[in-house]
C-alpha cells in the first residue's frame, strides 16, 4: 500500500491545470478529493507520475440554486451536499443519495466531481446524475463543453471526457415530483449490491414522467429509459411496476462478485427498483 513515486502539483488556476495536462498527457491525472484515485495509486493499479491537485483552483466549490437549474462545482463534497438546506429543498434526492455514500469521514473529502468523473461503476452519483438528466461541464485546451450524464459513461473508468479535459461542474435541471434513492449494500462503506435513482411526476393518479437509473449493475451506470416509459400513463399498479422492472432488467448486465451471483443481483435490482418507485410515487 505504498504508491510509486510521483510529482505533486497544486496549481492556483485552471490555466495552470490545463498546461500541466498538456505537458504530461497520459502521465498526469487530476485529483479532487482523492478517495478513488489515491487507493488505486497505493495499490499500484493506477500509475500516475504527475498528480495535479485541484484544491487550490478557485471557483469549483460552489452550489448555486437557480430558477431552472442547480450548478454544483466539481470540488463540492458529499458533506457539502448533505449540509446545504437550499439544495435539499429543491432536490432532496441529492441528500438522500449522498447520505448513503460511504461514511462521514469519506464524505468530508469525497467530491461530486471526482465521483462522477472517475467512471467507477460502483459510484452512486453517476446513476443519480443520469436519473436527473444532469450535464457535466468539462474544460480543455479548446475551451469548455458540456456532456449529458446519460452520454458520459462508456465503460468502467472510460468516459466521454478526454484525457486533457477537466470536469469542472455539474448542471442539474430542477427536479420535479417525487424522488427516491434506494440502495442495498453489505455494510457502511460498501458499494451498492444494487441501487436505484427514481424521480417521478404525477397528475391526479396517473404517472406523467418517470426517470430511472441503476447503479453498480453494469460496467457503467444504467439509465433505463424503457423502465421509466413503462410507468408513464399508468397508475403505478402492480402490472406497471412489473413492466418497469422487466424493462430495467433488460438494460442491466450485472456480473458476479463477492456480493453475489448474477441471479441474486437481478432479483435484488428488481426489488430495490420497485421499492424506489413506490417511495418516489408516495412523495410525488
Amino acid at each position: 500500500m505504498i504508491p510509486a513515486e510521483f510529482d505533486y502539483y497544486r496549481p492556483k488556476d485552471m490555466a495552470g491545470v490545463l498546461s500541466l495536462l498538456e505537458e504530461h498527457g497520459d502521465d498526469a491525472r487530476v485529483m479532487a478529493g482523492g478517495h478513488s484515485l489515491i487507493p488505486m495509486m497505493k495499490l499500484r493499479m493506477a500509475d500516475v507520475p504527475h498528480l495535479i491537485d485541484l484544491q487550490d483552483v478557485g471557483g469549483l466549490s460552489d452550489i448555486e440554486v437557480g430558477p431552472d437549474a442547480i450548478k454544483i462545482g466539481a470540488l463540492v463534497t458529499q458533506a457539502d451536499i448533505i449540509d446545504h438546506a437550499g439544495l435539499t429543498n429543491v432536490a432532496p434526492i441529492l441528500r438522500e443519495a449522498a447520505l448513503q455514500i460511504a461514511d462521514p469521514q469519506v464524505r468530508y473529502m469525497g467530491t461530486v466531481g471526482g465521483n462522477v468523473a472517475n467512471g467507477d461503476p460502483g459510484n452512486d452519483m453517476p446513476g443519480l446524475m443520469q436519473c436527473l438528466d444532469a450535464a457535466f461541464t468539462v474544460v480543455g485546451a479548446d475551451g469548455e463543453r458540456t456532456i449529458p450524464a446519460r452520454e458520459f459513461y462508456e465503460a468502467a473508468y472510460m468516459t466521454a471526457r478526454e484525457d486533457d479535459e477537466v470536469l469542472t461542474g455539474v448542471t442539474i435541471p430542477l427536479p420535479k415530483g417525487g424522488y427516491a434513492y434506494e440502495k442495498q449494500k453489505r455494510k457502511i462503506g460498501d458499494y451498492a449490491t444494487a441501487a436505484a435513482a427514481v424521480q417521478i411526476t404525477k397528475d391526479g393518479g396517473s404517472c406523467v414522467s418517470a426517470s430511472i437509473a441503476m447503479t453498480n449493475l453494469s460496467d457503467t451506470p444504467i439509465y433505463s429509459e424503457a423502465a421509466g416509459a413503462a410507468l408513464v400513463g399508468t397508475s403505478l399498479d402492480d402490472a406497471a411496476l412489473s413492466a418497469a422492472v422487466a424493462a430495467m432488467l433488460g438494460d442491466i448486465d450485472p456480473t458476479e462478485d463477492n456480493r453475489g451471483p448474477v441471479a441474486f443481483k437481478n432479483h435484488v435490482a428488481g426489488v430495490i427498483l420497485r421499492r424506489a418507485i413506490e417511495r418516489a410515487w408516495s412523495r410525488a
Binding site: 453489505r186 455494510k187 457502511i188 462503506g189 458499494y191 463477492n258
Partner: peptide, 28 residues
C-alpha cells in the same frame, strides 16, 4: 453474517481488503 476469507479455484484470495472482508462498524 458475512466475514470470511474466500478463495477461488486458482487459490486467489478474494477477500483481501476491508471492502470485501466484513468488519462491522457501529452502524451494523
Amino acid at each position: 453474517l458475512g466475514q470470511e476469507i474466500a478463495y477461488d479455484d486458482m487459490g486467489n484470495c478474494k477477500t483481501g481488503t476491508l471492502m470485501d472482508f466484513f468488519l462491522p462498524t457501529a452502524w451494523e
